[in-house]
Design a protein around this nucleic acid. Structure first.
Lengths: 158, 158
DNA sequence: ACCATATAGGACTATACTGGTACTGTATAA
DNA sequence: TTATACAGTACCAGTATAGTCCTATATGGT
């Protein structure tokens, strides 16, 4: 199949959604409401992404998550790596000594090349690119709670 | 991770090995001997690849498997698709209606684009490309049994 | 000070997939 | 006729994935 996990997929959906209002804070609840996925899954994803630095978080009342960088600066490669670790199309693309046939294996170097190409492709696509096409339903997709300001601790506050 | 399964990985190793002698017939046993992987796994892979048309097979004494096409004409994309089905980096890259948020989802089209790029990259790389670099251990890697001719039924016989 | 809200960080479960095995059947060449 | 080698399928164990739940902690407002 050669695919990313559903989790990562969901992750990009959530990020794209948040990218409509990059500056504001989104609570797990509001994201859940908009995205139509199980709430616990959403908050798990948000937690993971904030731990890996894609999002910043803020606890407490009016808390929530915010994009840590501008949508143009977040690449798919980053997202994938954040949610499922380093990109390696084969196990031996990154590490030596894992494979019993490494000596026979004239293939490894080439796989690493392929890997590079793919990694590149994923790095080219930013969150901003990802949400190019319609930009139609923006107004509908955003509920009021998404409009609140980032919580105070996040601005270089007082 | 974004990676192909070990199976597919092994598959390419086996194919590359066979590609050293594209014209001759390789028995499961001889491939197993050369490749250093569990025999049952090897024959499972050979079966799968022959069913999907990458290899032709021939039963009976002196039987075995042969590449169905020249190494230059077998792409990684083909191999991956043969062993793990159509390449789709996300589940929705191919099919509609799987995803609950498809309406919100401005992302799908872009993922399909990414998918295309990757698919392309994999199509560029042929089995021949895959075994470019060394070509060193050819003589060692091939044991005598690999030198036998294709079995009669495979030539447009009599 | 207190409370409601919202994230942090786990542990936990069920299910699906992956890698590997085993066994029976069938075609082929000698 | 027999030994050889592929065909097909059912099976099993280990692991990864998707999803749930619970407790702790931080924040803002009253």
């Amino acid at each position: 199949m050669l695919r990313i996990s559903k989790f990562t997929d969901y992750g990009t959906v959530i990020l794209a959604l948040m990218a409509h209002n990059p500056a504001s804070t989104h609570s797990a609840a509001s994201v859940t409401r908009q995205v139509g996925l199980p709430g616990s899954t959403v908050s798990k994803l948000l937690k993971m992404m904030s731990r890996s630095g894609l999002l910043t978080s803020c606890r407490g009342k009016q808390g929530g998550y915010t994009l840590a960088k501008a949508p143009q600066e977040i690449s798919l490669a980053e997202v994938i790596e954040a949610l499922e670790g380093p990109i390696g199309i084969t196990e031996c693309s990154r590490q030596n000594g894992l494979c019993q046939v490494e000596s026979h294996c004239a293939i490894r170097r080439q796989w690493q090349g392929v890997n590079g190409v793919i990694h590149n492709a994923l790095q080219q696509v930013s969150l901003a690119t990802l949400m190019h096409p319609p930009a139609v339903t923006e107004a509908e997709a955003i509920d009021t709670s998404a409009h609140k300001e980032p919580c105070t601790t996040q601005r270089i506050s007082v």
